[in-house]
Design a protein around this nucleic acid. Structure first.
Length: 554
RNA sequence: GCGCCCGUAGCUCAACGGGACAGAGCAACGGACUUCUAAUCCGUAGGUUGUGGGUUCGAUUCCCGCCGGGCGCGCCA
């Protein structure tokens, strides 16, 4: 993977550092693209860091490093010391062009970086209780989890996407009861949805369907059978709805895992006995507790209630034990912000089970504040007030919705004014990126229409750069694998959004400033068409990682 | 009260696990289409990074105190 320019630079700098100071092998320097071109192509802060340990002025250390590096670096035209001690590198054009040649060969595989080494990773996300349709906040989780999974796959992990169905417990009981109330109301009975029940309109529709399907007679069934029927019917219908929403949002899961199954095959029981055996549990007030405080939780947590029913926590521990048994090297859980208080106890439970420190990785997705005409809209399924994901998709489209959710760090709050997104949909940043791709396709379409002929892309690269705009575009293109690597390591799709916006910007500038189709100058035309093709490859590969469509025309 | 997230241009956000002059997009202003898609480009303007300290060659970034906003703190899930 030597086209990871930064990687090879880093390696050489590391070697130079250890020559200057053998003891300081673990200096955590960075190599980054420069913000300004007068600083060259890439720069490192290594000298500043070494200066500290050596107790010498950074500039001096930088000079020493430069002397060591200069003869070492192939493909680097210039090494300079600037500022207080930055070391700047300027790539040779020939090297850059060689890298471009490799991109053409790699094509759809370009951007693959093998940091995963085939390790099995699971990403579990959305996992909404089947008690109501998906809302906008879930959409953010869905877009994030799906993009992370795609990125990890590109980075060499073996990835599975999973949805955990909370089809057990009190909330589900309440759902069944709420449906029965709606059902009875349809038959004219004067009954009310109980405290804490689900009041959303969607249950009225489902009750209507059930009535048409099974008739009023089901109310005559024995209590046990009747509540089971209402409960299961509600879960089934709502889950089907959730699946349909996710399909339309282009989010597909490999596994749908039922919480209830953990009870049915005795795994909850088993994990509880495991924890008992290890001596991390105790009885108090008629309940069974886990000593999560041993690992930093605020207080111990209940596993089995006074009434004998296991808590959600208990089944969740069993669930993660199950994940471990399935052979994942690591599992990534993506939760809504309302669950963040749950993190310490879950990590504690993993430690109680003796699982590796880094087995479970949890991401918290902060809420989306939906604004509609300046008015904030609260989202709570239990209150029955929420903005469905579906209606957002219908208003702004899948591509725009996904891009908006992904363009920021999910752990920060996101403000999303629907009215504004609707009104300004033509200025949406996602179109800026997609438009670059559509333009490229259009150039080739035009070239064919005019029956132009040009030198093959690979051959054309030897004509080299004519201006800085072409060169900037080339730099952006070869930087792609580094972005994939970073966003995979940090699990941050938004780095790709930023990168895409940059790349599209470099292309739009290039396009506006230089004519591509010019039969009078075939070498130049050929070289520029090669750049177009290269840009197209990267735009396509990157958009696919985000689950955003790649339009041929707009 | 305790814990987590956040506070950067008028608005929405960047700044790549301390670095060069804090950058984009909207909104504002001025230019560029008889020529490959103007959903674009080129340019101008816009800032005491909430606030007060501290750590050091250097702080938007790390630490502490305050101010303001969001979310949690169940034998719910």
């Amino acid at each position: 993977m030597s086209y990871l320019v930064l990687e090879s630079l880093k390696e050489k700098i590391g070697e130079a550092l250890s020559l200057l100071s053998p003891s300081s092998g673990q200096i955590d320097f960075v190599v980054e693209p420069t913000r300004e071109k007068r600083h060259g192509d890439f720069a490192t802060n290594a000298a500043f860091l070494l200066a500290r340990t050596l107790q010498r002025p950074p500039r001096e250390v930088a000079q020493d490093l430069k002397r060591l590096l200069e003869p070492q670096l192939l493909g680097v035209a210039r090494v300079t010391v600037a500022g207080g001690g930055f070391i700047n590198f300027t790539l040779e054009d020939a090297f850059l062009l060689e890298l471009l040649g490799r991109v053409l060969v790699e094509d759809e595989r370009f951007g693959e970086v093998d940091i995963g080494k085939g390790k099995k990773v699971q990403v579990e996300f959305v996992s909404v209780n089947p008690t109501g349709p998906l809302h906008v906040g879930h959409g953010k989780c869905a877009a994030f989890g799906d993009a992370v999974a795609r990125i990890l796959k590109k980075a060499g992990f073996q990835v599975e996407k999973e949805y955990y169905i909370n089809d057990a417990g009190k909330q589900i009981e309440l759902l069944g009861i709420s449906l029965e109330v709606r059902f009875r109301q349809l038959l004219g009975e004067n009954v009310d949805i109980p405290e804490g029940g689900y009041r959303g309109e969607y249950l009225v529709d489902i009750a209507q369907e059930l009535l048409e399907e099974r008739g009023a007679g089901i109310l005559e069934l024995p209590v046990e059978e009747r509540t089971k029927l209402f409960r299961e019917y509600a879960v089934e219908k709502i889950l089907a709805e959730i699946r349909r929403d996710l399909d339309d949002f282009r989010v597909f899961f490999d596994v749908w895992f039922s919480e209830r199954s953990l009870y049915e095959n005795g795994e909850v029981e088993y994990v509880l006995s495991l924890l008992r055996e290890k001596g991390y549990t105790y009885e108090q007030d008629g309940a069974l507790w886990l000593r999560t405080t041993l690992w930093g939780d605020d207080k111990d947590r209940v596993l089995i209630r006074e009434n004998g029913a296991p808590t959600y926590f208990a089944s969740d521990i069993a669930y993660h034990w199950n994940k471990w048994k399935r052979g994942f090297a690591r599992v990534i859980d993506i939760w809504g912000a309302d669950h963040h208080g749950y993190i310490p106890r879950m990590h504690a439970a993993m430690k109680a089970l003796g699982l590796p420190e880094d087995f479970l990785e949890i991401f918290i997705v902060q809420f989306v504040t939906l604004l509609r005409g300046g008015q904030p809209e609260r989202m709570s399924t239990r209150q029955g007030e929420f903005v469905p994901l579906r209606s957002l998709i219908e208003e702004v489209g899948v591509d725009a919705a996904r891009y908006y959710f992904l363009m920021r760090d999910p752990e920060t709050h996101l403000e999303f004014d629907v009215e504004e997104a609707k009104r300004q949909s033509m200025d949406n940043p996602v179109y800026y990126v997609q438009y670059a791709h559509a333009r490229i396709v259009s150039v080739f379409r035009e070239a064919k229409k005019r029956d132009l002929s040009w030198v093959s892309f690979q051959e054309a690269l030897r004509f080299g750069f004519e201006n800085e705009d072409e060169r900037n575009l080339a730099k952006a293109i070869v930087y792609f694998p580094e972005v994939v690597k970073q966003s995979a390591l940090l699990r941050q799709p938004y780095l790709l959004c930023n990168y895409l916006h940059d790349l599209a910007g470099s292309f739009h500038s290039f396009y506006n400033l230089h004519r591509i189709l010019d039969p009078e100058n075939v070498p130049r035309m050929s070289f520029r068409l090669a750049l177009c093709r290269l840009t197209q490859i990267v735009l396509r590969n990157a958009l696919e990682l985000l689950g955003i469509s790649v339009p041929e025309s707009m």
